[in-house]
C-alpha cells in the first residue's frame, strides 16, 4: 500500500510539473495562437538556470552561485523568459510559421549547446552538484517527496488561478481578439506584435518554472531531459485536454502522462525481450497518432474552450476561394 501511495505521489509530482508547462503553452497557443515548437528549450532553460543558480560550486562546470532556492527557481524562470524575449522579438512580427520554425530551432540548438558546452552545463554527463532544498528538514525519503509534491501542487494551483484571472481580464480578451482577427485588433490601436510578445514571454516563464521544478525534483538535469520529444508530449497534453481551456490543459497533462507511463510499463512487462529496444519507438508512434487523431477527430480537445467572447462576423475566409478585393 505504501508502495502504491509512494508511486502515486511520484507520478502526481511529475504530472503536476508537466501540467504547469502545459498551462504555459496554453497561454501561448490556446489563448494567443502562438505556435511554440520548442517548448523544451524554455523548459530546459528554467531547469539549467535553476540548478546553475542554486547549486554548490563545481570544479568542472559553471554553477555554485548557491542562491537560496526561491531565488534560484525564479532566476531559472527568468532565463526562460529572456530566451523567449529574444526569439519573440525576432519572429513575432513575421509569418506565424516562422515562430514555429525558430522555436523548433532554438530547442535543437539548446540541446546541442547543453550537450557540448561542458563548462556551462556539464555536457552530456549532465549537471550535478545541486542539493534539494530543505533536505535537512524532510530527509530523502517519502516524506520529502510528499512535501515537494505539496509545493508543486501549490504552484500549479497558483499558476492556474493566475491564468484564469489573466484570461478573464481585459488583457485576456485582447489576446483572443488578436488571435481571432489581427486586423481588427490593430484597428483598435493595439499592437498585436507587442501583445503577442508579452503572452509569449509570460508563457515561457511558466514553462521555465516547470523546468526548474523538474530539475529540482531529480536534483539533476542532462541533455537527455531536453530532447524534442518532451515538446511533443507537452503539446499532446494540451491538444488532448483542450487548447484554450486551463482545466483541459491540466486534465490533458495527467491523462497523457498516465498513458505514457502505463504504456511504458506495459511494454516493459509484456512485450517480448527483443522488442524492448523499440519501446521508445512504439511510444512515440502512439503519441504521434494521438496528435494526428485528435486533430482529425476532435481538434477542440476533450474539454473545449468555452468561448467568452467571439468575434461574430469575422470568421476566417476559406483560402482557396479567398477574396481578392
Amino acid at each position: 500500500m505504501i508502495g502504491f501511495i509512494s508511486y502515486a505521489v511520484f507520478f502526481s509530482t511529475v504530472a503536476s510539473i508537466l501540467a504547469i508547462a502545459v498551462l504555459g503553452l496554453n497561454l501561448q497557443w490556446g489563448f494567443t495562437g502562438l505556435f511554440n515548437g520548442g517548448v523544451v528549450a524554455f523548459f530546459g532553460a528554467g531547469a539549467y538556470g535553476t540548478l546553475i543558480l542554486g547549486g554548490t560550486p563545481q570544479a568542472d562546470h559553471l554553477g555554485g552561485f548557491g542562491l537560496i532556492y526561491p531565488l534560484a527557481l525564479a532566476g531559472g524562470a527568468a532565463v526562460a523568459g529572456l530566451l523567449a524575449w529574444v526569439v519573440g522579438i525576432l519572429t513575432l512580427r513575421l509569418r506565424q510559421d516562422y515562430l514555429a520554425i525558430a522555436t523548433f530551432g532554438i530547442a535543437v540548438t539548446f540541446e546541442n549547446v547543453m550537450r557540448n558546452a561542458e563548462a556551462l552545463s556539464g555536457g552530456a554527463k549532465g549537471f550535478r552538484g545541486f542539493e534539494r532544498p530543505l533536505r535537512d528538514l524532510f530527509g530523502d525519503g517519502f516524506g520529502y517527496n510528499l512535501a515537494f509534491f505539496c509545493f508543486v501542487l501549490a504552484l500549479l494551483v497558483g499558476v492556474f488561478l493566475f491564468l484564469e484571472r489573466l484570461v478573464r481580464s481585459p488583457f485576456g480578451r485582447l489576446l483572443r481578439a488578436i488571435r481571432e482577427d489581427e486586423d481588427a485588433a490593430r484597428s483598435l490601436g493595439k499592437s498585436p506584435a507587442r501583445v503577442r510578445l508579452v503572452s509569449f514571454v509570460t508563457g515561457s516563464v511558466i514553462i521555465g518554472l516547470a523546468g526548474g521544478l523538474y530539475a529540482t525534483f531529480y536534483a539533476f538535469i542532462s541533455p537527455q531531459d531536453v530532447l524534442p520529444t518532451l515538446t511533443f508530449q507537452i503539446w499532446a497534453m494540451l491538444i488532448v485536454g483542450g487548447a484554450g481551456n486551463n482545466r483541459g490543459a491540466v486534465f490533458g497533462a495527467f491523462l497523457i502522462w498516465g498513458g505514457w507511463t502505463s504504456s511504458g510499463w506495459a511494454l516493459s512487462r509484456f512485450a517480448p525481450v527483443e522488442a524492448q529496444l523499440y519501446t521508445g519507438s512504439i511510444q512515440y508512434i502512439l503519441i504521434g497518432s494521438i496528435i494526428v487523431t485528435m486533430l482529425l477527430w476532435r481538434p477542440q480537445g476533450l474539454l473545449p474552450e468555452r468561448l467568452v467572447i467571439s468575434q461574430a462576423g469575422q470568421p476566417r475566409k476559406p483560402r482557396t476561394t479567398g477574396s481578392m478585393t
Partner: peptide, 11 residues
C-alpha cells in the same frame, strides 16, 4: 497543419 506535421514526422 504545422502541428499535424509534427505528429506525422514522429509516426
Amino acid at each position: 497543419m504545422v502541428f499535424a506535421s509534427f505528429g506525422v514526422a514522429m509516426i
